[in-house]
Amino acid sequence: MSKNLIPLWEVFIRPRNGLAHKHCGSVHAADEVMALQAARDVYTRRGEGTSIWVVPSSAITASDPENKDENFEPSLSKVYRHPTFYEIPDDVGHM
């Protein structure tokens, strides 16, 4: 068996206009049309969304957790990218 696997799709849903699509799970479907319908039938039964994206799981390229430190740690020390790094007298007011 396992010769005829029905492809896996990742499902992203926009909860309401103004918000970004958010990953909420996956479905199995043979093609993109049925994947969208399956996503609708599975993940929006309680009014969870106003728009759906489906993406073949195989099309996602993910960063390697092995490279987590080199990818993400260098940014942690760059505190000057954050507004709190700069000292402005209170008298100036909100900036």
Binding site: G25, V27, H28
Partner: peptide
Amino acid sequence: VQDEGGHGLYLYSAAETLGVSREEMTE
């Protein structure tokens, strides 16, 4: 009962992230 099917589906999906297919689990 439909919800139970949905819950099965969410859970198979979670297991699939560990490198096992729904078909294998069904078998």
